[in-house]
Simulated assay, not measured.
Amino acid sequence: MKRRICIFAMLLMMCHAYTQIVYHDATHFPLLGKAAGATGTRYERFPDSLKNISRAPLWSLSRNSAGMAIRFRSNSTQIAAKWETLGNNHMNHMTDVGVKGLDLYCLQKDGKWRFVNSGRPTGKTTQATIIAHMQPEEREYMLYLPLYDGLVSLFIGVDSLSSITQPAVDAPVRTKPVAFYGTSILQGGCANRPGMAHTNIISRRLNRECINLGFSGNALLDLEVAKIMAEVDASVFVLDFVPNASVEQMQERMETFYNIIRKKHLDTPIVFIEDPIFTHSLFDRNIAREVQRKNQTLNEIFTLLKKKGEKNIYLIHSDKMLGDDGEATVDGIHFTDLGMMRYADLVCPVIQKLIKKKKVQ
């Protein structure tokens, strides 16, 4: 009888040990979605050399981890995370999960990524179990990082007796990423959770790494951003700055911004995207006029580039971007998850076609 009790106690101890969570520094695993390497900390988007050169708001936003994701593999029955955000930011039109939370995806046998669950933030520092009670089998994971905050540190938690290793599958494919430049919408405003930012949706659909250089309210065609983009060996460059840039800024800088990239990538497709037809422009006549004027300016400069003999440049019109039901934004401007999906529906086929065309050439 005593022997049975001892065996039972040992089994309980083993089970208890198995369910203990051990945390591993995420710096040991691949980081996707980063354009520049020489950053002050791992989860920033600008190199440290731009700290005293960039406009202050642009530099501050570059410290947000928008579009970045950690890739790893584990056979754990649970996945947890501990993370400290840079600013503990909060916005009144976007969920805290989207602003400063985490989003876990798992690669399925059919090659598609499946949403698992989110890490919901509780403050500047959070410790949370994202998923539990799974079968102990090897799985490939992708953990999306905050869209509108930065990270001081990130640790991934797994069962103490399980393994956590480098990914065994190259997905999303990291060679020849798609590089995006744009506004608050491109940065991820206002997706409910990080995985629903449209660059992340497009990355999963294309099975291709995407780089998010979206800067809320600050896509003003700053030439240092063009220089950063030009250092990326991209398959396609997507320029979606019109919601922020004024007509005057486009007239002054758009061609120069384009030429900086083109000089280093003679044949790479470069895609321009019109200003969205914002849902409240149906009622706000000033917004409607502004959108029309900006899109007209973009089209004029694009046509001029074509007349100058520029090739492999493309323009995506926005009239069908958000649908016709008015339900795709949270405030008339920033996209809900529905808006993000509709944007991806419009843009993804164009990028996919250009990648295939480039391969054929």
Rank of each mutant, 00 (worst) to 15 (best):
E248Q: 14
R205M: 08
L31N: 08
V97F: 07
M134L: 15
E255S: 14
F72S: 12
G98I: 09
L107I: 05
Q249D: 13
E137F: 08
F8K: 11
V247T: 13
R42S: 12
H90M: 11
I53M: 11
D325G: 07
S281H: 01
I185G: 01
C15T: 12
D96G: 15
V116M: 14
P269L: 09
G189H: 06
K308I: 02
K358G: 12
Q352F: 05
V347R: 01
T39A: 13
S76V: 08
T122C: 02
P349T: 02
F241C: 06
N192R: 10
S162W: 09
L282I: 14
A9C: 11
P172Y: 10
G188I: 04
V347N: 01
A9R: 09
N75W: 09
F335R: 03
Y105K: 08
M340L: 01
V178S: 09
V350K: 04
S118F: 00
H133L: 08
T39G: 10
M1W: 11
E300K: 15
I201H: 00
N89A: 15
T126Y: 06
Q352P: 07
V330L: 06
E137P: 01
S54W: 07
N92Q: 15
F302V: 08
L213F: 07
K320I: 00
A328T: 00
L186N: 01
G323D: 05
L143D: 05
Q296S: 13
I333G: 00
Y258F: 15
M68N: 11
L154C: 03
T175R: 15
T126Q: 01
N299H: 13
D110V: 03
I53N: 11
F241R: 02
K124G: 15
M340R: 00
P167K: 10
E248S: 15
E300G: 10
T125M: 04
M142Y: 03
F8H: 12
E248A: 15
V152C: 06
D267N: 15
V238Y: 13
G217H: 02
T77D: 13
K308S: 09
S216L: 05
V330Y: 09
I53P: 11
K311E: 14
V152E: 09
V291Q: 13
R45F: 04
R45M: 12
L223V: 09
S246K: 04
F237Q: 06
P146Q: 03
L266N: 11
I228Q: 12
